[in-house]
Amino acid sequence: MGLEEKLPSGIALTTVEQVVGLARKSSMWPATFGLACCAIEMMAVGGPHYDLARFGMEKFGATPRQADLMVVAGRVSQKMAPVLRQIYDQMPEPKWVIAMGVCASSGGMFNNYAIVQGVDHIVPVDIYLPGCPPRPEMFLDAVLKLHDKVQNTKLGAHRELEITEIEERMLRRSLPVVTRD
């Protein structure tokens, strides 16, 4: 076939992107950002029954400066929103966000004055995880999906190209936003 055929055993070929992705996804450090009910389920995932340590994520960082994943677990109030953004800004790049539960994803059942209608108004979100609260298994699924995304993230010029492509695709999409007079 090609080069692979001629390699001695014990050597595999891959791309730098895949190696970096593997390193990044295998040891993600989430920041503890428990807000409400979902936080309890997030803690349950960290507990022995569901065991997040299987995915190299048991180290919940106490400080955002040593974390690369923010799990927004619960409803974000108007009062909490600036705090949340500040913590996000304190996290080093690269960083990812999971909006855990419907409240963090869209405001959920609390369509009222106190709750921000989706945390994506404040920080960019990678994974929206529905459920009220999502079951621990669902959270694990979201984590695995995010790992997949991280694994396949491109680097450097490829990444820039990818961003441009995604942006163009989004611009072509028709938005459901309507203006009121």
Binding site: C37, S77, M109, N112, Y113
Partner: peptide
């Protein structure tokens, strides 16, 4: 920092729907 406006939200739902809200207070 977690004020959710549940008490006000309940005024816009029926009495039965209220249980869905109160259960999320002290979770």
């Amino acid at each position: 920092y977690l004020h959710t406006g549940i008490e006000k939200n309940m005024e816009y739902r029926t009495w039965t729907q209220g249980t869905t809200f109160v259960t999320r207070m002290d979770y």
